[in-house]
Nucleic acid binder design. Structure first.
Length: 569
RNA sequence: CGGGGUAUAGCGCAGCCUGGUAGCGCAUCUGCUUUGGGAGCAGAGGGUCGUUGGUUCGAAUCCAGCUGCCCCGACCA
């Protein structure tokens, strides 16, 4: 490929209205252009990268025994009504009517369609296990698309769905997908982690996410420095450390007219933040007699909303009490709440339950108690894991302590179980000739998002630094001084042909621009290896070779380019 | 869906306050020169100033509605 013939609209200046690096660099490198909010056109350079991602995924999915299918993007409402999601999904499900006024939606995911095809076409356990996957455009009418293709409305997903006749089979299918995912992400050449995840709204039990590590990631992931334990912060278990000390102090009531926050309490009274607790009031579930329930956390900890919502006594979705509801129920405002004389049920975080001689609100405006001790001053707490993990916390398997990094979620594997198969009556006959409901797994990879995530992880101040496996080209050639010595251009083309004949993808930058412009563009679009041909090097029958991420330039003989290109990888 | 911006040439912006028919840089086109880190000179083309309505002799400029896009929050792969 020659740059002079390619649509490669690179930008010298930073586009405005971009907040993450990948969005900025994808626009500057001429990979994408925005059509409307959350909708992007992939230009030739970007599409080449996208196809690299797709190809690796296809190869590994096929290797793992999955079979590719292609499903409609527009789906009939009936299927969604059957699974119950027509009403569960909010406005992010884009609904439309055809000319006959029949309801359809743009598929945000394809569980219903795949379950429908399998229930129609598979009738015996002998046809299982089965794993079908698709790679295609999906649409979610995101409330707020942002960050370029990182969170767009239309995006490409690879989704695989496994079908087994029993739970054991599901576990095997899941494990096979997990391993395929590890191979896929290894091949991308990105630094990633597989972490335990909350299964969220999609439902199901076992679930792991794959995250590409990047400081700009939207998720916090937690992992042990002493073992392989890794989890999304939503899921990362927090165990109690240490023991509860016996009381040293008497409980005393202290006037705190202006201290409405833990910070103020700590600053104004000089007490240890680990000797304070905070009290949050949320709506209780039907299991609870009261309308509200109090959640207690140590002062320096933060509430994990997913854990709280999953607690049986807490209403889902998690709903915080309003200030007036708090006043009505507790008899005091949010700055003065605590476990002593608390009129509603309490659930205490494991670590907060380890506190002794601690301070908390008195449930009376303007007053706190100090020197509180569980059992003695208020009822022994019902405990639960309610808080977000913090760096340095002990890992639950006792292996070490937690580190926290940021990640971009690019893959998710689920054991769905019978959620859809039961709702949609997807069954087969088992060995005993009885109808048995299928066990499903689903396995997604955000294909378009991978491209952005790769850039987030691999860039420098000059542009993108593609890993070899994702780069739009393997090598670029920049001829310089062809006007002084026509042999330069001849030789550049010859080298291009030679390398292409050996199966490499080569970009020849033959544009009539100064060397500086072309070097800058080649750095920007991130081709891993650059060959410079010039009269100077040609006199000695050599070219220059440079790796995108290394500052050194090496001279290699014309006869020896291929070997050197390979060793530079 | 709440809150806040913003809309003028392909891109980035000025002009608006104080109304008089649009300008700068980059990019593009032509010619000549130029080729080791985003070249020089000379010339040229390109905008119903988001849209609709109002005020006015006259609106990019003042007023109102609508729309797009962006940011912050709640939501998500």
């Amino acid at each position: 490929m020659r740059t002079s013939e390619m649509l490669l609209p690179t930008l010298k200046e930073d586009p405005v209205d971009t907040v993450v690096i990948s969005h900025k660099l994808m626009l500057r490198a001429g990979m994408i252009r925005q059509l409307a909010s959350g909708l992007y056109t992939w230009l030739p350079l970007g599409l080449r990268v996208l196809k690299k991602v797709e190809r690796i995924i296809r190869e590994e999915m096929d290797r793992a025994g999955a079979q590719e299918v292609l499903m409609p993007g527009v789906q009939p409402a009936e299927l969604w009504q059957e699974s119950g999601r027509w009403s569960q999904f909010g406005p992010e499900l884009l609904r439309l009517k055809d000319r006959h006024e029949r309801d359809f939606c743009l598929g945000p995911t394809h569980e219903e369609v795949i379950t429908d095809i399998v229930r129609r076409e598979v009738s015996s356990y002998k046809q299982l296990p089965l794993n079908l996957y698709q790679m295609q455009t999906k649409f979610r009418d995101e409330v707020r698309p942002r960050f370029g293709v990182m969170r767009s409305r239309e995006f490409i997903m690879k989704d695989a769905y496994s079908f087994d006749s029993n739970e054991d089979g599901l576990r095997k299918s899941y494990q096979a997908m997990y391993e395929a995912y590890c191979r896929i992400f290894d091949r991308f050449g990105l630094d990633y982690r597989a972490v335990l995840a909350d299964s969220g709204a999609i439902g199901g039990s076992g679930s792991q996410e794959f995250h590409v590590l990047a400081d700009s990631g939207e998720d916090e992931i937690v992992f042990s420095d002493g073992s392989g334990y890794a989890a999304n912060i939503e899921k990362a278990e927090c165990i109690a450390s240490g023991n509860r000390n016996d009381p040293d102090e008497q409980m005393r009531k202290v006037e705190t007219p202006t201290q409405k926050t833990i910070e103020a309490l700590v600053n104004d009274f000089g007490i240890d933040i680990q000797k304070t607790v905070k009290t949050l009031i949320v709506r209780a579930s039907d299991l609870c007699k009261a309308d509200f329930i109090a959640l207690i956390l140590r002062g320096d900890h933060t509430l994990n909303e997913v854990k709280a919502e999953n607690h049986p006594m807490v209403a889902s979705p998690l709903t915080f009490a309003t200030e007036s509801e708090i006043e009505a129920v507790m008899g005091a405002g949010p700055g003065s709440l605590g476990p002593v004389n608390c009129p509603i049920p309490l659930v205490t975080d494991r670590q907060a339950a380890m506190c002794s001689d601690f301070g908390a609100g008195a449930n009376e405006n303007g007053w706190h108690y100090f020197g509180i001790n569980w059992d003695r001053d208020c009822a022994a707490p019902k405990t639960a894991d309610l808080r977000n993990a913090a760096e340095g916390d002990p890992a639950p398997d006792g292996s070490g302590s937690y580190l926290i990094r940021r990640g971009i979620e690019v893959g998710h594997v689920f054991q769905l179980g019978k959620k859809y198969s039961l709702a949609m009556d997807a069954t087969v006959l088992d060995e005993n000739g009885k109808q048995s409901v299928l066990f499903m797994g689903c396995y997604g990879i955000g294909v378009t998002r991978i491209v952005a995530a790769a850039i987030e992880q691999r860039h420098d101040d000059r542009g993108i630094c593609w890993p070899r496996s994702l780069s739009p080209f393997d090598i670029c050639i920049v001829p310089i001084g062809g006007n002084k010595n026509p042999a330069v251009d001849v030789e550049a083309v010859r080298i291009q042909n030679e390398l292409q004949d050996r199966g490499l993808e080569v970009l020849l930058d033959d544009r009539n621009l100064g060397p500086g412009s072309r070097f800058a563009d080649m750095d920007l679009i991130g081709i891993p290896i650059r060959i410079v041909v010039s009269p100077k090097t040609l006199e000695e029958s050599e070219v220059e070779l440079k790796h995108r991420t290394q500052d050194i330039v090496i001279r290699v003989p014309l006869s020896d380019i291929l070997d050197n290109v390979i060793t530079l990888e």
